[in-house]
Each structure stands twice: as structure tokens, then as C-alpha cells.
Write a protein that binds this DNA or RNA. Structure first.
Lengths: 186, 186
DNA sequence: TTGCGCGGAGAACGATCGTTCTCTACGATA
DNA sequence: TATCGTAGAGAACGATCGTTCTCCGCGCAA
């Protein structure tokens, strides 16, 4: 294992999958080692502690989330469609068999009280999402107060779908978003 | 400690506060013992395991939540006001200094993947809330599809407020709910 | 070929946790 | 008063976890 970046990436990817599927505290570093195929010694050379690995995993999740959002928006031609594409993206995500809610919300609930670094990383991600929505709302020429309302719908859909175990919340939130859009831009 | 029910109540209440503040897995049974003033032996006579205690705590939280919702609704005179009182209730809750998000969402994120009993208890609570909203929507004479939309707003407000650390999401969600209500009943 | 340094496998260590067990004190009953 | 059962305090136990350390083998320079 000579390639530094490849080893790091394998560790982050394996940890991400395990943390998301079972929760962070339920996964030992030895399980990460086994899944990544990287020795413990090497993992601790790449990350000073499990906490640092958790932060790296959250950053990795942010990239995946951003890429998914952007990819969904690409298929849209208008600002309104780009906003609604968020909920189509959620719908596709909720239908994946390994969907288990938003990793940021889950990790925040699990560790946010004890690790301000985790809480900060989650807050950064959610703030970035709100800014993304605000940008789309601005492009649409709708009043700015619409943006947090749409973001709240997206957040609520994620926790509702995770707990219910069904993807219904995506199209319910999308319908609500359409109503809010209709009322905001006339 | 002769009174069975009082000891049980003290354990549940102490565990609830600790679990909510620090997360379930971060709180050892010895911390519960110290906070409740009930010996470990007695705790394990009342609850077969920590898992059982967790379930009891979730049930206790359900009672608190239901009572809070009902109390907020009492001050309302119309069905529309009763619906909006949900968001006033959330606003008051978000402003409490020890607010740390929805205990059900947090616990589900932490343990839902490993304990189907926990996942079930959380799902039961969320389903009951959705049924409550559906009842109010029915009283209002609005189309039933409005109910899950309002419930999603409430869920989203809870996670948004918890992560952001501000109570803003409550009135943002309330404003969205008003728009949805206006559009649904004309 | 020989010595050296790096990396992997996994044992080891100290801490913590859920759960049980031991010991002691006390209150009620005959 | 003597005895028995119960309850509390906390030690003990086995498991697990994060982190470090030891040992061994392999590739490379002189």
C-alpha cells in the first residue's frame, strides 16, 4: 500500500459505509480496518483519532451530496425546475435499499452533544444546503423568505422517510414545495 | 425506596434527561443510578436491560410530547389555529436552553439500525403525530394530502433548529404552513 | 549478499460499559 | 430479642473499544 491518497480514500469510503449503516459508535476501528483492507497502524498514520476520521467521512458525504444535487439540477432548464429537482433527487435516494436517513442528521443526533467538531461539520453542511436553496430562490426572483421554507421541507422529508421506511415523503414534500412556489411567484 | 412506581419514575426521568442531553450510548447505567438515586440492583429489577429502559424513556417522551401538543391546542379556538399551534409549541420548545432536537429522531439515528425495538417505538410516535395532524386537517375540511405536508414541515423544523442552534425554523415552518393552509382551503 | 528501514498483522493495554454478585445493615415478625 | 428477608453500596466480571506496541517479513542500497 504505497499510494497514500488511495489508502486514505479506501478508509474514508469504508468508514462512511459502515458508519451510515450501523451508526458511528457501533463501528469499531477494527471493522473499518477489515473493510478498508488498510492496517490499523496506517489508519492512525492517516488520521490522528477516530474523531478525525469521522470529520473526514462527513466531508466526503458533503461531496457526494453536492454532486447528487448538481446532477439532479442539470436535467432542469428553469429555476423552478431546479428547485423541484431537489425533491426528485430525494425521491431517488429514499428508494435505495440502504437508505437510512441523512447521515448528517444521524451523526449530529449521536455525537453532536459530545463533539463540537462534529456539530460544526454538520452545521456547515446544512448551512451550505440552505445557501444553495437561497441561490435558486433568488434566481427565480421569489422572495428570500421562501428559501428556508423549502429547506425545511427537504429536511423533514429526510427524517420522515428514514423513520417511516417509505419514500412517500419525497413527493409529499415536492407537492408542498409546488404550492409554496405557486403562492410566492405570481 | 419502598415505592415501586416512584423509583421507576425517577429512573425513567433521570435516564430521559441524561439520554437527551448526551445521547444514549454516551450515558452509562452508573450515571443513571447516580442521577436517579436508585441502586443498580433495583434498576435491573425494574428493567431487564438498558434496551428496556430506553424503550420506557421513549414512551415517557411520547407522553410529554402529547401533553405539550394538547396544551398548545387548548388555547386555539378553530381547527386552523389548532394546526398552527403545533408550530407555536415548537417555537417555545426550541427556545428552551436545553433543546437538542427531537429525542425520537436522535435516538433513531443512533440506535435505529441496531435495535428494531427502538426503531419501532420511534415509528409509532411519528405515526401517532401524523394521525394527530390528519385529524386536525379533517376537522378543517381540507384535503387529506395536506396532513403529511404539515407533518413534514414540523419534522424539518425540529432537525433544522437542532442543528442550527436557533429557533428560527419554527416561525419559518409556521409561515409555510399558513401558505399551505391558504392554498388548501378557499 | 547483507544490513536496514518500512509496512502489515495482530497482540497488548488501559479504559469503559452492561450486568451480576457479594457483603453488610436494617426492619419486620414470632 | 433473635432471625430472616430485603435493599443498598459498590466491587467484580467479561466484553468491547480506541489506541499503541511488538514482532516479523519483504524490498532496496552498498
Amino acid at each position: 500500500m504505497i499510494d497514500e491518497t488511495s489508502a486514505r480514500e479506501r478508509v474514508v469510503r469504508a468508514a462512511d459505509e459502515l458508519f451510515y449503516a450501523r451508526g458511528v459508535q457501533a463501528v469499531g476501528m477494527d471493522a473499518v480496518r477489515a473493510a478498508a483492507g488498510v492496517s490499523l497502524k496506517r489508519i492512525y498514520a492517516l488520521f490522528a483519532s477516530k474523531d478525525e476520521l469521522i470529520i473526514a467521512v462527513l466531508r466526503h458525504r458533503t461531496e457526494i451530496w453536492d454532486a447528487g444535487l448538481a446532477s439532479a439540477a442539470e436535467r432542469a432548464t428553469t429555476a423552478r425546475e431546479r428547485i423541484l429537482s431537489i425533491f426528485d433527487f430525494l425521491d431517488a435516494w429514499f428508494r435505495q435499499p440502504d437508505f437510512r436517513g441523512c447521515a448528517f442528521i444521524n451523526t449530529h443526533g449521536e455525537l453532536g452533544a459530545n463533539s463540537s467538531a462534529v456539530a460544526d461539520a454538520v452545521r456547515v453542511q446544512k448551512t451550505a444546503f440552505q445557501a444553495y436553496v437561497a441561490r435558486l430562490v433568488d434566481e427565480l426572483g421569489a422572495p428570500p423568505r421562501l428559501a428556508p421554507q423549502l429547506a425545511i421541507l427537504a429536511e423533514g422529508a429526510q427524517t420522515t422517510a428514514a423513520i417511516a421506511g417509505t419514500p412517500d415523503a419525497a413527493h409529499q414534500a415536492r407537492a408542498a414545495a409546488e404550492t409554496l412556489l405557486d403562492a410566492a411567484v405570481r
